[in-house]
């Protein structure tokens, strides 16, 4: 599918001459990656089982991430017995990064504001060894079904699932003086980073949708900061590459609440957040945010920011 002219121009503005490599990559199929669910099985045991099936496995920079190198039938990853038993989650490597940045601990209370379909919630429950508490929320009932189903399959026991508008949820929790140690806002977005997995995004892409999503993202992050404990951590992530949905949201939250950006490192090649876009300049601290471009690690595209509430 051919990208729209405006999309091409914007990527050219972001990447310059390198945009050619980006457009080559978005036409390449994604690597088949899975995340070991060590709530149910050890990595060693899973690798042994998958190798017994004849699958070729390659390790990644993230300990629980594995690449399946074998050619599989369409849907085979999801239909395998090991998947049905919850031994692994089919998850793209870049999407495994936001929970690693948040680092949820076993005694903490976590809010996953836009949780469905649950890849990051199940990963956080795994990092917390089913201790602490996660409140996993999503507003859409169809997506919530997938979330609940994935939580069951992965053996997650420390989670409370809510179905609410994220902004309303945060307001109610703040009013009840219920605050969180850490919050993940993996915001609904235009999905530019997932084009390799879903080429229809090129067709639905339009600038008005981006503007609408950016407005929603600002409301979500602002509400989320309200129910974060002082010194608490909020990770904001999207699977898109538009500055309006990423750096501009972070610039907005810096201006409108008491937060600061923290520097983070992940086991992937990243680039700093941009501080200028279409004549607008942003807070220089935004360089601490991470951009994951598909061509840098042969993954999806992602944006991650780690924020700390000052008071």
């Amino acid at each position: 599918m051919k990208p729209k002219q405006l999309f091409v121009e914007r990527i050219n503005d972001l990447l310059g001459s390198e945009s050619r490599i980006f457009f080559d990559y978005i036409n390449k199929p994604l690597l088949k990656t899975i995340r070991v669910n060590n709530l149910k099985i050890s990595k060693k045991n899973l690798i042994k089982k998958l190798k017994r099936k004849g699958w070729k496995i390659e390790e990644t920079g993230y300990d629980e991430g594995l690449i399946i190198k074998s050619k599989l039938f369409p849907g085979e990853l999801g239909k395998a017995l090991e998947h049905r038993l919850g031994y692994y989650y089919v998850q793209e490597l870049a999407s495994m990064m936001p929970p690693l940045v948040l680092q949820p601990k076993q005694d903490e209370i976590i809010l996953d504001l836009c949780a469905a379909p649950g890849s990051k919630t199940t990963q956080m429950a795994m990092l917390m060894k089913n201790k602490g508490t996660i409140i996993a929320n999503d507003v859409r009932i169809d997506r919530l079904k997938a979330l609940v189903s994935n939580l069951e399959r992965c053996g997650v026991m420390n989670t409370l699932v809510t179905r609410m508008n994220g902004i309303v949820l945060c307001k109610k929790l703040t009013k009840a003086k219920f605050f969180f140690d850490k919050i993940l806002v993996d915001a609904p977005c235009s999905g530019e980073g997932t084009i390799r997995n879903d080429q229809t995004i090129l067709r639905s892409w339009n600038i008005n949708m981006i503007k609408g999503l950016a407005a929603l993202q600002k409301k979500l992050i602002l509400s989320a900061v309200e129910c974060l404990k002082p010194q608490g951590t909020l990770v904001y992530s999207t699977c898109t590459l538009t500055p309006e949905e990423n750096e501009m949201v972070i610039d907005f939250i810096i201006k409108n609440s008491n937060i600061e950006i923290e520097k983070v490192e992940i086991p992937l090649k990243t680039r700093p957040g941009i501080i200028e876009w279409q004549g607008k300049t942003f807070n220089k601290e935004i360089k601490k945010c991470l951009r994951i471009w598909p061509q840098d690690n042969n993954t999806e595209g992602f944006f991650i920011a780690k924020l700390k509430k000052i008071k």
Partner: peptide
């Protein structure tokens, strides 16, 4: 805490079946 939350939030499920 769970009961308080159940009064202010729309809880769909809790824990594992």
């Amino acid at each position: 805490d769970i009961l308080i939350l159940s009064k202010i939030l729309t809880i769909d499920t809790i824990g594992l079946y």
